[in-house]
């Protein structure tokens, strides 16, 4: 039992959710899968005055094609991302990342939007969304705004979402045919967050590419590796990618998994691995 009292609302429409959120004036929490929020409330680390559930709001989940973009509802659960055919075809990095999130039960309940707003620095979708050039659609009673994933994450567990806003959709540009992509992560125990994770996209022709890294600082970081791979993905090119990853991981911090230096070193290793794998796939 959670010790502190709060109001609970289960709105049946998005508008109702938005107006409840607006009325609550700041100390309300939205609940999606609850996989991060409920443990925090149980432990007394989060103590909202009101909890507003998105679980009964229709239209917030599922994957749709919208021209060159996949429009993924914020309430889409991990197991759907892992198995959805549109994701497999147009954004395989997301499916690859979803496989690693927690365990079977966590994947049945946790959501894409929940991960992005919770913004654990080593969460699986963070570097993936950066590398894919995803946009995050936020709605409030006042209207809609869209933020680039690379501008969304501000600090450890802090994003640019504002009071009164609901993350409603993640818009992921379809990868062009002939692209290569790879997601890999360092972890010691299955079902735990990564220590360091990395996602790469190499564009068709193998001249342009980018790598995003997570777990190596308060927010995910992205590197454009085009200049390094333009004349081929050689050992030399990968060495330059590795140096760039090391520099980008300058804000890595130590925790129980390892010290800052170790994580910076792992940034090198994983950046190289994902670029090599993505380039091998690209045409």
């Amino acid at each position: 039992m959670i010790s502190r009292e709060y109001e609970f609302h289960a709105p049946k429409t998005l508008n109702e959710a938005l107006s409840l959120l607006e009325k609550s004036g700041g100390n309300a929490k939205l609940i999606a899968g609850g996989m991060s929020l409920v443990p925090m409330m149980t432990l007394g680390l989060a103590h909202p005055d009101a909890v507003i559930s998105l679980n009964k709001v229709p239209g917030l989940d599922g994957v749709k094609e919208d021209g060159g973009v996949l429009a993924i509802g914020a309430m889409t659960r991990h197991h759907v991302l892992k198995t959805n055919p549109l994701i497999a075809q147009h954004a395989p990095l997301l499916a690859e990342a979803a496989k690693y999130v927690g365990d079977v039960q966590v994947r049945h309940r946790g959501t894409l939007g929940g991960v992005l707003v919770h913004a654990d620095p080593a969460a699986d979708y963070l570097p993936v969304c950066l590398a894919l050039g995803a946009q995050i659609k936020l709605q409030s009673a006042k209207g809609v705004r869209t933020v680039e994933a690379r501008d969304f994450f501000k600090d450890i567990m802090t994003t640019s979402i504002e009071d009164g806003e609901i993350l409603v959709e993640v818009r992921v540009p379809k990868l062009p045919a002939g692209s290569g992509s790879s997601y890999q992560r360092l972890h010691r125990v299955e079902g735990n967050y990564a220590i360091v994770n990395a996602a790469a996209v190499v564009e068709p022709g193998k001249k342009k590419g980018r790598v995003a890294l997570g777990g190596v600082g308060p927010t995910p970081v992205m590197i454009d590796v085009s200049a390094h791979i333009a004349s081929g993905v050689s050992d030399d090119a990968l060495r330059r990618v590795s140096d760039a990853a090391f520099a980008a991981a300058e804000n890595a911090y130590g925790d129980l998994n390892g010290d800052a230096k170790y994580k910076q070193a792992m940034a090198r290793v994983y950046a190289q691995r994902v670029v090599r794998a993505a380039a091998a796939q690209a045409q």
Binding site: M35, V104, V106, H108, R109
Partner: peptide, 9 residues
């Protein structure tokens, strides 16, 4: 689907 009932209200 299996879920962890300690994390669901």
């Amino acid at each position: 689907r299996t879920v962890k009932s300690c994390c669901i209200l």
